[in-house]
């Protein structure tokens, strides 16, 4: 069975990546920023898997699996930091993280 052309997958992947990047740049809640980072990585994953299918090779899919594991551990660290900040009663707003500047 034939699915859509590779371009369709690539456009969706680029769209996901751009959505994520935009989210990181404009959203202010660190939770949403983490979510956006995940969307970026998953855009890349989709591209990897689509290309892997097109070439009929497995290495792109293995790469995507490994990326999922990495993304999960990154989120664990990020959420840990957010919990630590919430316990300090800090505002969960990346625009207000201004202790460091100059």
């Amino acid at each position: 069975m034939m699915g859509p052309e590779i371009n369709a997958y690539l456009i969706l992947a680029a769209f996901l990546f751009a959505t994520g990047a935009l989210g990181v740049l404009i959203r202010r809640s660190p939770l949403i920023v983490l979510l956006s980072l995940e969307i970026m990585l998953n855009g890349a994953n989709l591209a990897l898997i689509a290309f892997s299918r097109r070439f009929g090779e497995i290495d792109g899919q293995i790469f995507a699996l490994a990326v999922m594991a990495v993304a999960a551990s990154e989120v664990v660290v990020g959420l840990g930091l957010i919990v630590a900040m919430a316990r300090r009663h800090l505002d969960l707003d990346v625009d207000k993280l201004t202790t460091l500047r100059g």
Partner: peptide
């Protein structure tokens, strides 16, 4: 850092493609 890694990963996917 993750933003940079994301760019690197998407770049790798394109090179692979």
């Amino acid at each position: 850092g993750s933003f940079g890694s994301g760019a690197l990963l998407f770049g790798s996917a394109l090179v692979y493609g």
